[in-house]
Nucleic acid binder design. Structure first.
Length: 866
RNA sequence: GGGGAGGUGGCGGAAUCGGUAGACGCAUCGGACUUAAAAUCCGAAGGGCGAACAGCCCGUGGGGGUUCGAGCCCCCCCCUCCCUACCA
C-alpha cells in the first residue's frame, strides 16, 4: 500500500499562498486605519528594491529577500506591527536598453518584467504587504518624485551648469556615468570622451559635513561607513594664490593640504582643462600646449590614470611667483606646466608641486629634471630629500623662513596665518564629493517638472499640474547629436505657463535612474496617498527604516543619494528623522561554479560534464578545473529560483538559501547540497505525520497534557529549548544557518525517540521553523487543529530552566592536552573536581611532579606537571 | 598604490567570554529493508603509527610570541575575494 500522507510541497505551497492573499495575513495597518493596534511596537524591514530585469530574479537576488522575509515573519510573531513592502525600481538605463534591444516600449517591457518578478517572489512565499507595491515609473509614483525634486529646487539645491558628460563617438550618443567603465562604453567597449553640456546638478556638497557627521548616529557596517567617508573625502588645507608673470588681473589658485611645504614648491601644474591655461601660455609654447591638451581630452580616464603611471606634461613658458617669497629671488619663480595628472575636478584644478614631499610631484620632477628642495626634515632614521628620496610624512620645517623649526602641524597653521596676513591665501576645506549630475539626455526617466520661460527664467510647474507625464514616443532612442529624445516631440516640449499664459518650453532632460530610489522607503509608508507623497502621521509612525538589507554594491551611490534627499526633506519639515536607515546590513554574493580549460579560459556550463567527480568538456577527454566565480549569463551558471522551487518546493529553497552560510558571506551555490534541506523537511514531516495513516497528524500530538515530563520527553524538552535558544541567537547574528542546524539536530533527536514528542514541543518547533519554511509550518499547524495562521502565532519563548542539567562532562587535560573526560555534578566544588579528574588521568600523573592544577568549574581541569 | 572582507576536513560551514576543533548538511564508504533499484533508516569517517571502539603523535595559510591552555589575543610574512584608483 503506497504511503498517501506524505509531504507534498507543491500542493501545500499553492494552497497557503492563496489563503494568505485571501485573508490579508500580511497586511500592515497604518495609524489611521480602523484595525490599527497602537499597543504593538513597529518594525520596518526593507529590501533594496530591484530593477525588474528581463531575465528575472536569480538566486543571488533572493538571498537578501529570503532573509528579510524570515526576519519580518519572526518580528510579526514577536508582536510587532511589521512593515515589509516590495516594489520596483523600473526607471533608468537598464530598462531603456532592454526596451531598445527588444524593440518594445519600456512601459511594456517593464510591465512584463514586474509581473514576472512579482510572480517569482510570490512563489517563494514572501510575506510582503502586496497592497503597498510601488513602481517608480508609474505616474502615480513619479508625480511625487517630481514634487520632491521641486522641494530641492525651491531650496536652491538644483542648478544648471555646463558640465562635461560622456560622449561615445562610436554609438553617437551621450552615456551616463554608470554606462562608462574605465573610459569605455559598458555596451560594446567603445572609447568615450567628455563633452561639455548644460546639465542639472544637485548640490549634495552642501550636505557633505552632515552626511559625514551623521554616520555616527546610525548602526551601519564599519566598511560602509568607511567607504562613505572616503567618498565624501573631506580634506583640510589651504587655498594659495600665486601671481602669474604677465597676467596682472588674475592669480592662479591652488589647493594644498600641506601649506607648510610652500617653500619647497619648485614648479606649478595646471590641468589640461584649466580655464586659465589659454591665457597664461606663452606664445612659443602655445602649439605644444594645445596639442597636449587636445590629446588629454581624447584620452579615456583609464589611459589618464592606470596607464599613465609614466607622467606626461608640457611647459607653458610662463612663471608663477611664490607668495611667501621675495619676488626678486630666483627660487621664487616657479615654471608653470600643464599635465594630466592634475585633475580639473578636484580642488582648483591646479597645484603647487613640492617634489621633495609629494610622490606624484617627485615622479614628475624626476622625469623632467626639475629641482627638488627639502623643506620638511623627516624623523631620525627616515630617508628624506637629503637622501634623494621623497618624504611625504610629518617632520620639522627647514629651509622655510619663518616656519623653520616648527613641527608639521604647527607649520601648517603658521603658513596659513602668513598667507592670510598677506592676503594671498586662506584656510579651506575641500571635498572629493562633487555635486550630483542629475540630468540625462534619455527617455525612460522622470521628466523635470520645470518650465523655461522666454526671458530665460525657470519656474516649477504648479503642483496641481503633476504628474508631468512622459509623452508616449515610438522612437525614444538616444539621438545622434546628444540631444534628449523628448526634444523630438515638439508638441510636448512647447507649452504655456499656466500662471501667466505666456509661451514656455519644457525641460527635455529626464532624471537619472537613482531618482526614484531616493525616497521610496517613505512612499511605502503611505503608498496610496494622492494628496501628498506620504502623510506626516505615517512617516512619524513607521520611520526610520529599522533594518535595510541589500548588496554592498550600493555602499556609496544609492545610500549617499538617499541620505541626501532624506536630509533635504528633513530640513523642509517633511520627515521627522535626520537619517533614513537606522541599521544596514549587506548580504554576501552568491557565487556559482564555473569551469576553466588548461589556458584558464572559461567554458560555459552546458559544455561541461562531470565524470567520476572530475570535469570534462562534453564528449572529450579534456579535463576542466572547477572554480568559484560570479553568476553570469555568458557562463550559463545563473540559477533561477523557479527551477529549484519546481524540483524541491519553496520551503526547501528558502531553507537552502539560509543554510548556505552566514548572510554576510559570499558563498557558492551548490545544487548538490539542496536535497539535504529537503530531507530535513521530510524528516520533520514524518516526525509529526504518519505517512501510512490518513490522520492529519500522529494522534498523540492532539493530546494536550500538563503532566510532568519524564524520560525521553524530558530530554526532548531540553533539546527543543536548546534549539529555540540557538534559533534566537542566529537571528541576532544574521547566521540563520546555525539556527537551522539546531532545528535539524532537534528533529534527529526526536526521530531517535519514537513517540516521546509532545504536542507542545511540536508546536514550538513549528513556530521556530515557520519564518524559514512558512508553508510547511502553516500546513502542520493547521493539521494540529489551529484555526489562526502560524504567521500570527506567538514566537516561542526559551524556558531557561529546562536548559539546566544536573551533570556535565568535565574535560581533563595534562599540560594543556586533552587526556580524558568525566561526568561530574553541576554542584561539585573545585576540590572535588580536581580529585575526580586526577583519577581519570592517574596513569599520566604517575611519577610526575604536579606544579599546578587549573580548575575551571563547568569546563575543565588542567594538571600542569613535569 | 589605498581601503575592506577573508584563509578551518573531499565540499558549504560550526566552535557565543582564551577552555573538548570539525556541530549541522553535502559527497563518500559500510550495513538494514527490497527479487532488484529508488526512497528511507542505522553506522563509520581530519591526517599519521597501531589488530584495536587501547594508546601516542600531527593538525584551523606560514613563522614567532603571550598563556596552565590560542582557530580566537600580539608581532612578522604569504595567499584569495570585493571596492577604489594620481583627490594635491
Amino acid at each position: 500500500m503506497p504511503a498517501e500522507n506524505r509531504y507534498e510541497p507543491h500542493a501545500i505551497e499553492s494552497r497557503w499562498q492563496r489563503l494568505w492573499e485571501q485573508r490579508g495575513t500580511f497586511h500592515a495597518s497604518n495609524p489611521s486605519d480602523a484595525d490599527f493596534d497602537p499597543g504593538r511596537p513597529k518594525y520596518y524591514v526593507l529590501d533594496m528594491f530591484p530593477y525588474p530585469s528581463g531575465s528575472g530574479l536569480h538566486v543571488g537576488h533572493a538571498l537578501g529577500y529570503v532573509a528579510t522575509d524570515a526576519i519580518a515573519r519572526r518580528k510579526r510573531m514577536q508582536g510587532y506591527n511589521v512593515l515589509h513592502p516590495m516594489g520596483w525600481d523600473s526607471f533608468g538605463l537598464p530598462a531603456e536598453q532592454y526596451a531598445i534591444q527588444t524593440g518594445k516600449h519600456p512601459a511594456e517591457t517593464t510591465a512584463l518584467n514586474t509581473a514576472n518578478y512579482r510572480a517569482q517572489l510570490k512563489r517563494i512565499g514572501m510575506a510582503y504587504d502586496w497592497s503597498r507595491e510601488i513602481d517608480t515609473s508609474s505616474p502615480s509614483y513619479y508625480r511625487w518624485t517630481q514634487r520632491l525634486f521641486g522641494v530641492l529646487f525651491e531650496a536652491g539645491l538644483a542648478y544648471q551648469a555646463e558640465v562635461p558628460v560622456w560622449w561615445c563617438e562610436e554609438l553617437k550618443t551621450v552615456l551616463a556615468n554608470e554606462e562608462v567603465i574605465n573610459g569605455r562604453s559598458e555596451r560594446g567597449n567603445h572609447p568615450c570622451e567628455r563633452r561639455p553640456l548644460k546639465q542639472w546638478m544637485l548640490k549634495i556638497t552642501a550636505f557633505a559635513d552632515r552626511l559625514l557627521a551623521d554616520l555616527e548616529e546610525i548602526d551601519w557596517p564599519e566598511s560602509i561607513e568607511i567607504q562613505q567617508r572616503e567618498w565624501i573625502g573631506r580634506s583640510e588645507g589651504a587655498e594659495v594664490d600665486f601671481a602669474v608673470e604677465g597676467l596682472e588681473d588674475e592669480a592662479l589658485s591652488v589647493f594644498t593640504t600641506r601649506p607648510d611645504t610652500l617653500f619647497g614648491a619648485t614648479f606649478m601644474v595646471v590641468a589640461p582643462e584649466h580655464p586659465l591655461l589659454e591665457r597664461l601660455v606663452a606664445d612659443e609654447q602655445r602649439a605644444a600646449v594645445e596639442d597636449y591638451a587636445r590629446a588629454a581630452a581624447a584620452k579615456s580616464d583609464l589611459e589618464r590614470t592606470d596607464l599613465a603611471r609614466d607622467k606626461s606634461g608640457v611647459f607653458t613658458g610662463t612663471f608663477a611667483v611664490n607668495p611667501l617669497m621675495d619676488a626678486g629671488e630666483e627660487c621664487a619663480r616657479l615654471p608653470i606646466w600643464v599635465a594630466d595628472y592634475v585633475l580639473m575636478g578636484y580642488g582648483t584644478g591646479a597645484i603647487m608641486a613640492v617634489p621633495g614631499h609629494d610622490e606624484r610631484d617627485f615622479e614628475f620632477a624626476t622625469r623632467f629634471d626639475l629641482p627638488v628642495i627639502e623643506v620638511v626634515q623627516p624623523p631620525v632614521g627616515t630617508p628624506g630629500a637629503g637622501d634623494g628620496a621623497c618624504f611625504s610624512g610629518e617632520g620639522t620645517a627647514v629651509n622655510s623662513g619663518l616656519l623653520d623649526g616648527l613641527p608639521t602641524p604647527a607649520a601648517i597653521a603658521r603658513a596659513v596665518e602668513l598667507l592670510e596676513d598677506g592676503g594671498t591665501g586662506r584656510a579651506r576645506v575641500t571635498y572629493r564629493l562633487r555635486d550630483w549630475l542629475f540630468s540625462r539626455q534619455r527617455y525612460w526617466g522622470e521628466p523635470f517638472p520645470l518650465l523655461h520661460l522666454e526671458d530665460g527664467s525657470i519656474t516649477l510647474l504648479p503642483e496641481e499640474d503633476l504628474p508631468l507625464e512622459l509623452p508616449v514616443m515610438e522612437d525614444f532612442a538616444p539621438s545622434a547629436e546628444g540631444s534628449a529624445p523628448l526634444a523630438r516631440d515638439p508638441d510636448w516640449a512647447r507649452t504655456i505657463d499656466p500662471r501667466t499664459g505666456r509661451p514656455a518650453r519644457r525641460d527635455t532632460d529626464t532624471m537619472p535612474g537613482w531618482a526614484g530610489s531616493c525616497w521610496y522607503w517613505l512612499r511605502f509608508m503611505d503608498p496610496h496617498n494622492d494628496e501628498q507623497p506620504f502623510s506626516a502621521e505615517a512617516e512619524s509612525y513607521w520611520g526610520p527604516v529599522d533594518l535595510y538589507v541589500g548588496g554592498a554594491a550600493h555602499a556609496v551611490m544609492h545610500l549617499l543619494y538617499a541620505r541626501f534627499w532624506h536630509k533635504v526633506l528633513h530640513d523642509a519639515g517633511l520627515v521627522s528623522t535626520a537619517e533614513p536607515f537606522q541599521a544596514l546590513f549587506n548580504q554576501g554574493m552568491i557565487q556559482a561554479f564555473a569551469y576553466q580549460d588548461a589556458t584558464e579560459r572559461l567554458v560555459p556550463t552546458d559544455e561541461v560534464e562531470a565524470r567520476g567527480g572530475r570535469f570534462f568538456r562534453v564528449g572529450s577527454d579534456e579535463e576542466l578545473t572547477q572554480i568559484v566565480t560570479k553568476m553570469a549569463k555568458s557562463l550559463g551558471n545563473v540559477v533561477n529560483p523557479d527551477d529549484i522551487i519546481a524540483e524541491y518546493g519553496a520551503d526547501t529553497f528558502r531553507l537552502y538559501e539560509m543554510f548556505m552560510g552566514p548572510l554576510a558571506d559570499s558563498k557558492p551555490w551548490n545544487p548538490r547540497d539542496i536535497p539535504g534541506c529537503r530531507r530535513f523537511l521530510d524528516r520533520a514531516w514524518r516526525m509529526l505525520v504518519d505517512p501510512d495513516d490518513p490522520a492529519p497528524v500522529r494522534p498523540r500530538l492532539l493530546e494536550e497534557t500538563d503532566a510532568a515530563l519524564e524520560g525521553d520527553a524530558l530530554f526532548l524538552e531540553r533539546e527543543v529549548n536548546r534549539a529555540l535558544s540557538r534559533v534566537d541567537d542566529s537571528y541576532e547574528r544574521f547566521n540563520l544557518n546555525t539556527g537551522i542546524a539546531a532545528l535539524m539536530s532537534f528533529v534527529n533527536e526526536a526521530g531517535k525517540r519514537g513517540g516521546a514528542l509532545t504536542r507542545s514541543q511540536a508546536e514550538r518547533f513549528l513556530s521556530a521553523l515557520a519564518p524559514l519554511a512558512p508553508h510547511f509550518c502553516e500546513e502542520l499547524w493547521n493539521r494540529l487543529g489551529h484555526t489562526g495562521p502560524i504567521a500570527h502565532a506567538p514566537w516561542p519563548e526559551v524556558a531557561e530552566a529546562s536548559l539546566e542539567e544536573e551533570t556535565y562532562e568535565l574535560v581533563v587535560q595534562v599540560n594543556g592536552k586533552l587526556r580524558g573526560r568525566t561526568q561530574v555534578s553541576q554542584a561539585a566544588e573545585p576540590a572535588a573536581l580536581e580529585a575526580q579528574a586526577a583519577e581519570i588521568v592517574a596513569a599520566q600523573l604517575e611519577g610526575k611532579r604536579l606544579l599546578k592544577a587549573v580548575v575551571v568549574p563547568g569546563k575543565l581541569v588542567n594538571f600542569v606537571v613535569r
